[in-house]
Amino acid sequence: MTSSELARENLSLKVKRRVKSMLGPWGIFFEGFLRHPVMVGSIIPSSRFTVIKMLSRVRWDECRLFVEYGPGVGTFCRPVLDRLRRDGQLIVIDTNPLFIDYLRQTISDSRFTAVLGSAADVEDIVRAHGHDHADYVLSGLPFSTLPDGVGPAIAAATHRVLRPGGAFLVYQFTARARDFMARHFTRIDSGFEWLNIMPSFLFWGWKDDAA
Rank of each mutant, 00 (worst) to 15 (best):
A157M: 05
S3H: 11
N196S: 03
G140P: 06
I44C: 11
L98V: 13
D208H: 13
P152N: 00
K14I: 09
A182V: 03
R86E: 14
A211R: 06
V51T: 11
V126H: 00
D121V: 11
F76S: 02
T174W: 01
L116F: 06
W60A: 01
L116K: 03
P37C: 12
R183N: 08
V73E: 00
V92E: 06
I188T: 01
R163E: 06
Q172G: 02
A177N: 06
M54K: 00
T75K: 04
S46N: 11
P25K: 06
M39A: 15
T95N: 15
T158I: 11
L65T: 00
F66A: 06
F192H: 00
D101I: 10
D94I: 05
F66W: 03
D109R: 02
V161Y: 05
Y102K: 03
L146Q: 00
D124M: 15
I188D: 00
D109A: 08
R57H: 13
F29T: 02
P25N: 08
S42Y: 13
H133S: 15
G32Y: 03
L34M: 15
I188Q: 01
D135N: 09
M54E: 08
L90F: 08
G166V: 06
Q172W: 05
V137D: 00
T50N: 07
T186C: 09
V15A: 14
Q172R: 05
R8K: 13
D109W: 03
S4Q: 12
A128W: 10
I43Q: 11
M198R: 13
L55P: 12
G166S: 03
G70A: 09
L23Q: 04
V122L: 07
T145S: 15
V51W: 01
L34V: 14
D132R: 14
L195E: 05
T75V: 13
L65A: 04
D82H: 13
Q172D: 07
D94P: 13
P45S: 06
L65I: 11
A155Y: 02
R35F: 13
P164N: 03
F33D: 02
R178C: 11
